[in-house]
Design a protein around this nucleic acid. Sequence first.
DNA 1: TGTTTTTACCCAAACGTTTGCGTAAACTTC
DNA 2: GAAGTTTACGCAAACGTTTGGGTAAAAACA
Lengths: 344, 344
Amino acid sequence: MTLKDIASLAGVSPSTVSRVINHPGAKAASREVEDKIWQIVRETGYIPDASARSLKLHQASGQNLNAPKSIGCLLARTHTSDPFFSKIARGLEREALRNGYTVKYIFSYQDIQKPDIQQSIRQTKVEGVALLGRPDSKMRSFLKANYKKIIYAGLNNIDSEFDQITCNAYLASKTAVSYLAKLGHTRIAYLGERKNEIRYRGYLDAISQLALPLNRNYIIDTPLSTEGGYRAAIRLLSSDNNVTALFCANDLTAIGAMKAAKETGRQIPGNLSVIGIDDIETCQYTEPMLTTIHIPTEDLGTMTAKILIDRIETGKRIPMKVELPFRLIRRDSCAAPSSTPNYT
Amino acid sequence: MTLKDIASLAGVSPSTVSRVINHPGAKAASREVEDKIWQIVRETGYIPDASARSLKLHQASGQNLNAPKSIGCLLARTHTSDPFFSKIARGLEREALRNGYTVKYIFSYQDIQKPDIQQSIRQTKVEGVALLGRPDSKMRSFLKANYKKIIYAGLNNIDSEFDQITCNAYLASKTAVSYLAKLGHTRIAYLGERKNEIRYRGYLDAISQLALPLNRNYIIDTPLSTEGGYRAAIRLLSSDNNVTALFCANDLTAIGAMKAAKETGRQIPGNLSVIGIDDIETCQYTEPMLTTIHIPTEDLGTMTAKILIDRIETGKRIPMKVELPFRLIRRDSCAAPSSTPNYT
DNA sequence: TGTTTTTACCCAAACGTTTGCGTAAACTTC
DNA sequence: GAAGTTTACGCAAACGTTTGGGTAAAAACA
């Protein structure tokens, strides 16, 4: 349904329809014609095309009072089933809706180099976009080329011109490791990603600052998923009997690791302590319940929405990096290393 | 700064600039010219006008052979973090992408009555939509009014004109209950939703067909989430010492229930058997591992995409109801009821 | 009745892009 | 060196609006 269609249905020219719609009341057309036009508009459910309008008016996209507004949310498909990101998305959506915005999600990260995918994404009209999880460089340049208002939410700082809503995962990691150290652990392994990963750096720095021995074998590079954690832990635990604690870069990984631990005969937290990051819901349903660092995931989402929407509505950009607080949640998966330290 | 400006600065036509910018690498221009254009773009800080772009790209899917194509995916926000639906979505997305379609997700279910939300949804152009999870009547009429090509995917049959890709959850439920009965259980509880829920009907019919006693107290109406399962099970287990098995309408519920069982002193599967439906990944990471009915979730998604896309491309509709097979996965959470049947 | 004003509409030119088609020139191939 | 193929571009027509500048017909006026 376009203006033209309405026009021909009403038997008038597009100009007339446009005037009627945009300046209601201003007698741009006869009473009769005006009524007829409105009627048809209602019947057909016609919605003026926002792009065309803004193109023509070249108004800085803010004017139309009752226009449908929406923000985009970009998320890598691989993260689609990660509760951490779902939760952020949920906060985002809630806050957006409260402000009258719809959220449109796009998960087609990895195919961003294909031109038709790019087009398809561009085609969905949004006033700004929230970026969940680290973008690769392709994604980054695509975003810069196509959107003015972009906010990144996630755990890693990304060195880029986007504004960021994060939690200080570097500190969070150090906190987790320190906690393990304070319990008496000295042989602490890292399970998670390494490349450009701030949690890994946090681990490394904590180890060195606490003057703990750094053992290369205790660093396992693995994707942040339950299966990744399981595999990594199996690898580690079946070849080494000295580790007493596992620092996992997120809860999913930790949960996988716990299963591996049990399968290789460990008691948690008896012979082995496990700690994660995120505090996803499942942490409370594992046996034992998982000690972890709580990240205010949902708030991450709502803040992102708030700031993005503020930027959209005021048109002003105050560059910023927001950091939300984390905290250690002591549950049952960590304890002092057993007095008979080595598992046999 | 417009395309034209860039073009004249570079001494070429706008078309060339456009091509260079949009299909980088595709030798749309000579190496020389291309470099020059990028250089000017960088120097001038040119940003393509989003409205113009989207206006142009919108052109209603009629002519343009390699136009960007996309399908919509509607999912209730409440299901957003349910692994069952994430998995369907993942299958859907994979298949769609393989066919050159992008998927656009919308989670704004509950606010569908607000006109501006409706507008915003309508505004996103898609060639067809996949509907994950049962729509309420508002949603249904909205969909019927706005889209021609709709396919429903999920566990419940919905009596509607939409085509459906499902698993026979009715039979699945009966299978689960029969399995428990075959193990020797007679006091089997139902934890899950009741209203219009086919799994509930399956439970009821199984109980009656197997001539087991039907105990109203063993039917707990609860939302399908971990927390829902936990609450429901606490309620049941702390007031009754005779149940020997819990049939949970999905795995999330079952996982919550397992926690409650442990907290109330049950051994699984010693004193209490628990069975779920879905076979989400977490099932393998619980203690004990959860026996469940496997639903080919990802296939549900790919089938949905396949059929939807076929309909879009051929333009023909062959009304259909597709049913994918399920199967029982025996893990460790179910066993024969103990010889000292009552828990004390 | 002739002249001016008003009413009610239409025409067509933009807005900044993208892209199918066309075409000179350059390069192959035999 | 003729015939075909490829490369590297330009032309112009869209996309859906808005709006300034018309102009016939109707209304008002003298």
